[in-house]
């Protein structure tokens, strides 16, 4: 098939992390070119390389400042609480279910993005599981009680508070010295990215219980999308599935690699071997988490989201994980 010469301007997710480095960048700049006999070219950059923090990406995309963009769903909570739903802290504790609910949430978010920002959703990637790193002994989730935990965003904050911990917010770069000096006892970040950012050097225990994921939304300005040749649109819409598959497969592998590396196992390939005690979650931990979400954080979230948003949640994400939010 022949494609018209098309040049895409792409803003990807955080440039130093695997989803962008290993998958998005080659997808936009090489994979599409190969599939279109060189007709589709692109230049890509991570939003952080442009000095952006993520929450502003959808707004800028809507204003036409960016054509194709990516941002982390959890960063968008300020502009609409519905964006919290897919990455509600503690809701999903394995990558397969996360993949399932993310897939299920697509109609809900496509509608939301278009209505609020004039942006079309193309697909979702994800970061590996985010777990609890502590510079203190923890045997299970209940041990969060009384601990100072560095959180990112409202959803994690509410979960930690509900479990009896003190949520502390600070810049990502301040976490390592703060954990070392025990200004905070714990922090939540990716199993592998925590290893890459050396959190394992300043903490002793890791709780093997995913609390957040960090889904990455790939989206495009609606007008720019309409301006593309239909054949190009069809190709991108079809091929983005391979990007999604690659990123999600990697997330599963990277989550396990993060445990292996932090725990110092020989199977560690992608990080540096640490000396952390990896405490795998028990059934009691999972039960406590479920109870906390159903009784505390989900109702709180439902209270700040619109009736339509709660309905959408129940029909998509809620159905997939068997919880019901009440307005």
């Amino acid at each position: 098939q022949d494609y018209p010469k098309t040049h895409l301007k792409v803003v990807g997710s955080i440039s130093v992390l695997p989803p962008y480095k290993d998958y998005e960048l080659p997808f936009w700049t090489k994979h599409l070119a190969a599939k279109s006999n060189g007709a589709i070219t692109a230049d890509a950059k991570g939003f952080n390389e442009m000095g952006l923090k993520g929450p502003e990406v959808l707004r800028l995309m809507g204003q036409g400042v960016m054509q194709i963009g990516a941002t982390v769903m959890g960063y968008l909570a300020a502009d609409d609480p519905a964006t919290e739903a897919v990455d509600m802290a503690g809701l999903v504790t394995d990558v397969e279910t996360s993949r399932k609910i993310t897939e299920a949430s697509k109609p809900m978010y496509d509608k939301l993005f278009m209505a609020k920002f004039g942006v079309k959703l193309l697909g979702f990637g994800t970061y590996p599981a985010q777990v609890l790193y502590c510079n203190a002994e923890i045997k299970g989730l209940a041990d969060i009680k009384g601990k100072k935990v560095r959180v990112a965003g409202r959803s994690q904050s509410e979960l930690v508070a509900a479990l009896g911990g003190t949520p502390v917010t600070m810049a990502f770069g301040e976490v390592v010295p703060a954990m070392q000096n025990k200004t905070v006892d714990c922090g939540i970040t990716g199993t592998l990215s925590g290893n890459i950012a050396k959190w394992n050097e300043v903490s002793t225990h890791l709780l093997g219980l995913p609390l957040s994921w960090g889904q990455i939304a790939y989206a495009v300005n609606a007008k720019a999308w309409e301006g593309l040749d239909p054949k190009v649109r069809a190709l991108i819409a079809a091929e983005i599935k391979t990007l999604e598959k690659d990123v999600w497969d990697a997330a599963g592998y990277h989550t396990q690699q993060g445990y292996d590396c932090n725990g110092g196992l020989d199977s560690c390939k992608l990080g540096t071997k640490g000396k952390m005690k990896v405490v795998m979650a028990s059934d009691a931990d999972k039960a406590l988490l479920r109870k906390t979400i159903v009784e505390v954080t989900l109702p709180k979230w439902a209270a700040r989201c619109s009736a339509e948003c709660v309905k959408d949640f129940n029909e998509t994400i809620g159905k997939a994980v068997d919880v019901v939010a009440k307005k």
Partner: peptide
């Protein structure tokens, strides 16, 4: 070709 100038508000606020 893109209206980058419109980002100045968001960029300034976040800085």
């Amino acid at each position: 070709p893109l209206p980058l100038i419109r980002a100045i508000g968001e960029v300034s606020w976040s800085a």
